[in-house]
Write a protein that binds this DNA or RNA. Structure first.
Lengths: 259, 259
DNA sequence: CGTACAGTTGAGGAGATTCAATCATCGTGG
DNA sequence: CCACGATGATTGAATCTCCTCAACTGTACG
């Protein structure tokens, strides 16, 4: 269970540059030619390590940098005046955090490591200069931010229109495709976050998350053991998201049928 | 009721440049020095007029430009595969639409005029070149996009954590501050959108929107006549948003008391 | 081996939805 | 200028999904 850390966060990989990073096709370097990667590397501080629970940055502190996740997993969240936490996102290797605070005075959310995690720091001031010089880099960064807006819109839509089942199906599918992109299994993976964070993120009570997951399992769509997830019927999960299927065969009936 | 249009969208103002536009402090030009505004004006197509119901751009068509709203009001929305509409935002003068599609192949949403509206077109390709040349412009544009992410996050939060009353209070307050920014009344204004769009945007049924508005009115917080809104107690509305007050004194009781 | 925390399960209740009917408003054409 | 249909808005009643509260189970860790 801890073994996967070794692969991605060994001391060696930490000090490799963007050239060697196997995430470069997902990350910032994708935008720049080989000759410009060196300039990019110059401004990026590589491979800062964090233990579970450690902060990458904190809400309301001065904004300096975005961060690329290199290994591990991160959650971002805001805390309202009343002290309520709101999870705004989960970030996996190859993804960028801090885009919502670019060109702001202060970070608009906090970011904490959900497990042992390494990140690359992208100081925005220097980065903006570089982006002015390299049009494709500016373009790519616009694109990243634009995607972030779209994803947030997606989530908004999910929350405003979809049932608990559909929301959870959506999250599972999102994780699945994001693992696949990194050439990991899209059907067998470990949830980096506790149920409470899932609920918070999706606007559901923990109990509801738990119930829905159990329901999915009873319907043979997934198999769950703690945080270990196995997607057995990907298509069914997609159907759930499309309002096609409802898996809410309330257990009453099956109970009556003596199962 | 139609008089306000004359002020902001008379043929004259349409062909005035950014220099004279009274929205320049809210819009793009804020970022550039006086000497650079001319270069900005060169690439911006000013004052395109649209009637209510006309599209500024349509989802899935090739992305070319962002648009700054000059007068009127716009709603953006996506249509899912099943044909369901999801309103993603309302935009008032001084605000920019299309940021969620920057550096994308195609528009990720459609934009239609909610009333007679004029917009300025910002062709992104040329704009990116200019942004490379003018660091403050690049910076400002990053900032705009970042704000858009944050606002979308705000909305997500609203939908996931807040009741119907709180959501509607939030929208009213948002409109109020946005009108104020333009030095219009923040307490007396006309809703540019129908209840159905409000409901769709806030993840509520039209009936719920109607009920909550009526409730607010019964509690003396606002006065509503069709789309004309008068905020009578701004502080109370803010309290609602902070979970402080609940205005759900269900009418039952007042009915018992013989009203 | 007990404490703490994460996750599951059950019962009951509250807020929002859905369905249905009614009322209001507005632009249009006779 | 008024009647008309259409769309938008309101109100009521019944239903349902999800939340809350509570108890319980499992698991990690000192």
């Amino acid at each position: 269970m801890e073994s996967k850390h070794i692969a991605t966060s060994s001391p060696f990989s930490l000090h490799r540059g963007c050239h060697e990073c196997n995430l470069s096709k997902l990350c910032i370097p994708i935008a720049v030619g080989a000759e410009d990667i060196d300039r990019l590397e110059e401004i990026i501080r590589q491979g800062k390590m964090l233990n579970r629970g450690e902060y990458i940055f904190e809400q309301h502190t001065p904004f300096r940098s975005c961060f690329a996740v290199r290994s591990g997993a991160i959650k971002t969240f805001t805390v309202s005046e009343e002290g309520e936490e709101q999870v705004t996102g989960f970030y996996l290797p190859g993804e960028i955090i801090g885009l919502d605070s670019v060109s702001m005075e202060k970070y608009s959310c906090s970011a904490v490591a959900l497990e042992r995690t390494s990140v690359c720091e992208i100081p925005l001031e220097k980065f903006e200069d570089l982006a002015s010089d390299i049009p494709s880099l500016q373009h790519h960064f616009f694109s990243l931010m634009s995607k972030e807006i779209q994803e947030s819109r997606q989530l908004t839509m999910l929350l405003s229109k979809n049932s608990a089942e559909e929301r959870i199906a959506s999250l599972l599918l999102s994780l699945s495709t994001r693992f696949s992109r990194r050439r990991l299994s899209g059907t067998n993976f470990r949830l980096p976050m506790p149920r409470s964070d899932i609920g918070n993120y999706l606007g559901l009570a923990v109990e509801t998350v738990s119930r829905v997951i159990t329901r999915f399992q009873n319907n043979g769509i997934i198999k769950v053991q703690g945080r270990e997830v196995q997607i057995l019927q990907l298509e069914e999960l997609q159907k759930v998201l499309r309002h096609d299927t409802k898996c809410l065969e309330h257990q009453k009936e099956s109970a009556v049928n003596g199962r």
